[in-house]
Nucleic acid binder design. Sequence first.
RNA 1: GCUCCGGUAGUGUAGCUCGGCCAAUCAUUUCGGCCUUUCGAGCCGAGGACUCGGGUUCAAAUCCCGACCGGAGCACCA
Length: 505
Amino acid sequence: MAEPQKQKREEKQGLPELPLALANGEKVVMRFAPNPNGAATLGSARGIVVNSEYAKKYGGKFILRFDDTDPVVKRPLLEAYDWYLEDCAWLGAEPDEVVVASERLELYYKNAEELLKRGVAYVCFCPADVFKAYKDRKRACPHRAASVEENLESWGKMLGGGYDEKEAVLRIKTGMELEDPALRDWVAFRILKREHPRASVGRRFVVWPNLDFESAVEDHLLGVTHIIRGKDLMKSEKRQRFLYDHLGWNYPETTHWGRIKVQEFGKFSTSELRKRIERGEYEGWDDPRLPTLRALRRRGFQPEAVRKFFLSLGVSQTDIAVSLKNLYAENRKAVDALASRYFFVRNPKEMRLKAGKGGSFPLVARALKHPSRRADYREIRTGGDAVLISGDDFAKLREGEKIRLKFLCDVEIESVKPLIAKVVGSGSCTETTAKDFQIIQWAPTPAANGIKVAVKKPNGSEDEGVSEPLISEELGNVVQFERYGFVRIDSVLKEGREVVAYFTH
RNA sequence: GCUCCGGUAGUGUAGCUCGGCCAAUCAUUUCGGCCUUUCGAGCCGAGGACUCGGGUUCAAAUCCCGACCGGAGCACCA
């Protein structure tokens, strides 16, 4: 008797079930439909991840569709088309089909013509403000009463470039007396005499569909069964339903989610990012300060962490402000096992070593590459009688204090002003456990074989320091700088003598 | 102004459709402890929420009404 309940709980682990009202043998078809007017952001990632996840869950199809029908206000960026494909692949969401709206305008024209023939659309010549006045008074404008023939003629003239921009639009008849003003006779096509960035489209067309029309027609043509989109598009559904009714189509199931704000990034829009990048405020779309997927990838985030992060947000309709801490937590789990450990000292300070009783200096440290892989070592050679420690650790040192240079030896601080430390005991650190004193990381001096490292951080600042020689062999990998954080080795310069890393978290 | 939609811990989230198994789930964060040659990972423990007010009912986070708060649309943007 108690069985069914338990089962219910288990099932609720992933995303909620979609409402399934599919005909026999019909497959779930999901789509993600961005405007490629910039690189995919965290917001886009949610769409990619959730839609593709549902497609996977039900053994359905995932379509990537570029809604790029605004060559003016939200002009597409040519490179962004490929970037989206890369980002999808990176997120494990390779689309089963890719559709570019700007190359399918003729399909939309055909549907427009059909609507005109059925008398449920008309060419309207009202200036925007004049129409708004009619709309606010729930009155029809004179053009609404035009005959099918007149409309078809006007439409033909529109397509042929016979009107200027803003001179005419095509409207869908929904009813001027509708309660909700947002639904009254909405615009389906407008005139834009501007070249489209895609060479294959160029200047071939002057009549462009608006999102509501383009998206509605495409969803039907592509056989989309479920739409998940922002709740800012709720009215879109209502507008589009009139179109579906006019044409006798069945509207897909819809789910709307709320706005997502990432606390660390605040509000941002793709258009805004683009403006700033073009102004040179950022290095590019993968600048570590930006909330783009390209930037996250460069910082060393793992795709499965990004996926889990978005799946955990679900599809609720409330607006949310999430912290990246949740993403960091996921990524830490993903990256911890594969990141080798290295020492990095920020704002290095040289520590002179004085030989202890044994009379010699420890020259080589055998250090674990990973705390849970006990047989995996890396060697770090010191230059002899000096090492570097971080400025932060230096600031806390006091005379007479004992500390451990991890994997190398224990030392006692003799003096701080010139930093001098005496090697304690036999010059190794394997015999005693360091319960009662601090263990710090260190690095060889650049004069020995230390490597200069610049770490670029997401707040735009840069940390300078020194690390071990072996990191120059970690190009492209995520490593952990002990007691500092995870970083991705982004570039190796000057024949391996210098490294640039991006801070992950 | 008109029209939609939402409101569970610091942050997300489950539960709400079909009221009782909910003195409310899970994750993250915070705070303790264990372990550890990292301020990493892991393990253990603790704290913390149903916006408010009415109503229906034996019983309400769940249903109804109202208030309050928040968001969105009313573009020849997506």
